[in-house]
Amino acid sequence: MSPMPARDDVGTHRGLPFRALAPNAITALALCFGLTGVRFAVSASGEGPMLHWEYALGCIILAGVLDGMDGRIARLLKAQSRFGAELDSLSDNIAFGVAPALILFLWSLQYAPKFGWIAALALAVCCALRLARFNANIDADEQPHKSAGFLTGVPAPAGAGLAFIPVYAWLVTGNDVFRDWVIVLPWTLFIALLMISNLATYSWSSLRLRRSYRLFALAGVGLLGAALVTNPWLTLFVICALYLALIPFSIASYSRVKRRRAGAA
C-alpha cells in the first residue's frame, strides 16, 4: 500500500478555494485600473481629447472603490491571508501613488522647471512610505491611533483623491489657472506630507451614527450617488474639501480620547 499523503499535500491537490481567490482578484483589478489611468493620461498629454483626462481620473476612482471592497469581501468570506495583505499594499502603491503621480506630471508638473518631476516623485515615495509604515505596524501591540479607531495620516486612496483637487477644479470650470504648475506643485507636496504625517484622521470605525439619523444617512447616500452620476467632478471636489475640513476635528477628537484614557489610567 502506498503511504497516505501528508496534510499539506492534500491541501495542495484540492487547490485554492474560490473564496480565497475572489478578494485577491479584486485587488489585482484595482491595480489594473490604476495603470490604465496612466495609459489615458499618456494619450491625453499629446493632442488627445480632454475626455481622456476624465477617463484617467475615473480609472483611479474605480481603483479606490475596488480597494474599499476587497478587504471587506475577504473578511466576509473569511479569506484573509498574508499574501492578500501584501498584494493589497503593492496594488495601493501603484494605483494611488505611482499612477496619480504620473497623471499629475503629464497634466501639469512636466511644465515646471526642474522641480516638477521631484514633486511627482514625492507623491509616489510618500505613498510607499505610508504603506510601509502601515505594514511594519500591522502586528505591533502598541498602536494608539488604531486602538482608538483612527488612522495615522491620510490613507493612500484618500491621498490620491485629494491630490486631484486641482484637476477637479479644472474640469468643472475649464480655467487653465488650476493647471498652472505654480498651484499644482505645492499642492502635490502638501498632500504627500499629509500621507506620511502622524495626524490622527477619521476611519470608518471611528464614526458613529445615531439610530435616529439612519434614514437621513441613507437618503444622503442615495443623493450622493445621484450627484456623482450627474456631476462627478464637482461632487468629488466637494467631498475632498469636506474631508480636508474634517481633519482638524479628527485631531481634536483623538485628543479627547487620549485625555479620557489618561484619566482612566
Rank of each mutant, 00 (worst) to 15 (best):
L90Q: 02
W181M: 12
V167F: 13
L106N: 00
N137S: 14
F115Q: 03
H145D: 09
T173M: 06
R72M: 08
F178P: 11
L106S: 01
L123E: 04
D176W: 04
F96K: 06
D180L: 11
P100A: 12
P113C: 01
P113H: 03
A99Q: 01
P157F: 09
R133E: 05
G97S: 08
I165C: 13
A85Q: 03
G149L: 09
G149F: 06
R179K: 15
Q143G: 00
V154W: 10
K78Y: 05
A119R: 05
A79R: 12
S91T: 10
F96Y: 13
A163S: 15
A136E: 06
L131T: 07
I118G: 09
A119S: 13
N135R: 07
W170N: 12
L151T: 02
D180G: 11
G97K: 08
F105I: 08
A95D: 03
G84K: 05
A169N: 05
G159W: 08
L151R: 09
P157W: 07
A160G: 00
A85W: 02
L87E: 10
V182H: 15
A112F: 01
L106H: 06
I183K: 11
D70Q: 07
L104M: 11
R75I: 02
A122D: 06
I138V: 13
L171K: 12
A112K: 03
G153Y: 04
F105L: 14
A120G: 07
F115E: 06
G68H: 07
I183R: 11
L104S: 05
A85I: 01
L109N: 04
A158D: 06
Q80R: 12
M69I: 15
Y111H: 13
P155K: 04
C126S: 13
N137L: 12
A128N: 07
F178Y: 15
D180H: 15
A99E: 02
L129I: 15
Q110C: 09
F115T: 11
A122S: 14
F115C: 03
D92Y: 10
L121H: 01
N175T: 02
F96C: 08
Y111R: 12
P157S: 10
A85H: 00
A128W: 07
V177W: 14
A140Y: 00
P113W: 00
S108F: 03
G153P: 03
K78N: 14
G153S: 02
I73T: 12
T173P: 05
W107T: 01
V172G: 12
I138R: 09
L162E: 05
N137H: 11
L106T: 01
G153R: 03
W170F: 15
K146S: 12
S89G: 05
S91K: 07
I165Q: 11
D92H: 09
S91A: 15
G149I: 06
L121D: 01
F150N: 04
K114M: 11
A120K: 04
Q80P: 03
L104H: 05
P113T: 00
I73S: 07
A95E: 00
L109V: 00
Q110Y: 09
L76F: 14
A95S: 15
D139T: 04
S81I: 12
L77H: 05
R133S: 10
L87S: 12
P144G: 07
I103C: 00
F83Q: 10
D139K: 05
A112D: 08
L77Q: 10
R130Q: 01
G97L: 08
Y111G: 08
A74C: 13
A140T: 01
A158T: 14
F83V: 15
I165P: 09
A160R: 01
